[in-house]
Simulated scan of single mutants.
Amino acid sequence: MKVIIVEDEVLASENLIYLLKNIDPNIEVLKVLDSVKSSINFFSKPIEADLIFMDIHLADGLSFEIFDKVTVKTPLIFTTAYDQYAIKAFKVNSVDYLLKPLNEEELADAIIKFNSIVKTEPTINNSQIESVLQLLNSNNKTFKSTYLVQSRDELIPLKISDIAYFYIEVGIIKAITLDNKSFIINEKLESIVEEIDTSKFYRVNRQFVVNREAVLKIKFYFNGKLVLKTNPPFKERIIVSKAKATEFKNWMNN
């Protein structure tokens, strides 16, 4: 299989290549593109790739802008770090996606899925891309505002805006408020991320979702990772993976 990678983070593209080689040593990476501009130039000419892995957020814009300029007939698997709009659109339109940081098992499953789908539906169509763009640019998205949580022998509505961070502890989801109170949330972390406003909350790793208002400092950590200092403080290091570090800083800067 011959693949092309569209990814602006060097570490992320290197990690993807490493995982692909682990899954199948015969996979050949023809090209790594790091921007909308370079992708448009590249895809304006005939290509012989079997599959494209494409990050949504590139340094010079959304990768969907590529399709405004050129027609890409090669099947695509999109990658995204946190964009729940896109994930929902992919599910509706049968466009595949992978959530960063990439997992080898999920990547292998996606390739198996690609091999089965490509026989009957070799390319995505314009309507699929348009649907994703509409959801990405939509201002009508409504977000969950409260969770009903137990406090001793009663139930109380907990405002999401008052939550500093969510985290997983021994399989249980806990929410810590800005005034340092702890509550159990009876949902999966994946479901929570789909319900809350991702302009205010960011999933920094598989165990932790943080409120922008709770972040006091960002410290550089080894191997390109970041460590967050929050208020209230957490008992352990809150680490942003190297695959998400650049995007997290951009998110904090917006």
Rank of each mutant, 00 (worst) to 15 (best):
residue 34 D to K: 15
residue 220 F to L: 11
residue 25 P to D: 13
residue 223 N to W: 00
residue 126 N to Q: 15
residue 214 A to I: 03
residue 2 K to Y: 00
residue 195 E to G: 00
residue 216 L to G: 02
residue 99 L to E: 08
residue 19 L to T: 02
residue 46 P to Y: 11
residue 29 V to T: 15
residue 210 V to T: 03
residue 217 K to E: 15
residue 216 L to S: 08
residue 102 L to Q: 10
residue 24 D to M: 07
residue 155 L to V: 01
residue 54 M to G: 07
residue 80 T to Y: 04
residue 61 G to R: 10
residue 212 R to I: 15
residue 226 L to Q: 01
residue 57 H to Q: 15
residue 68 D to F: 00
residue 172 I to K: 02
residue 212 R to L: 15
residue 150 Q to D: 02
residue 100 K to S: 11
residue 93 N to A: 11
residue 64 F to K: 05
residue 53 F to R: 11
residue 14 E to G: 04
residue 253 N to D: 14
residue 50 D to Q: 12
residue 223 N to T: 08
residue 216 L to P: 00
residue 213 E to Q: 14
residue 85 Y to W: 02
residue 190 E to L: 07
residue 168 I to F: 01
residue 230 T to K: 09
residue 90 F to K: 04
residue 94 S to R: 15
residue 235 K to H: 13
residue 226 L to D: 03
residue 122 P to M: 07
residue 25 P to S: 12
residue 156 I to Y: 00
residue 98 L to N: 12
residue 218 I to W: 00
residue 62 L to Q: 06
residue 196 I to N: 01
residue 138 S to E: 08
residue 210 V to C: 06
residue 211 N to Y: 03
residue 145 S to A: 08
residue 132 V to I: 14
residue 158 L to H: 05
residue 93 N to L: 13
residue 73 K to M: 14
residue 172 I to E: 06
residue 150 Q to N: 06
residue 244 K to N: 13
residue 190 E to N: 10
residue 203 R to W: 05
residue 180 N to M: 00
residue 180 N to G: 00
residue 50 D to K: 14
residue 180 N to C: 01
residue 39 S to I: 08
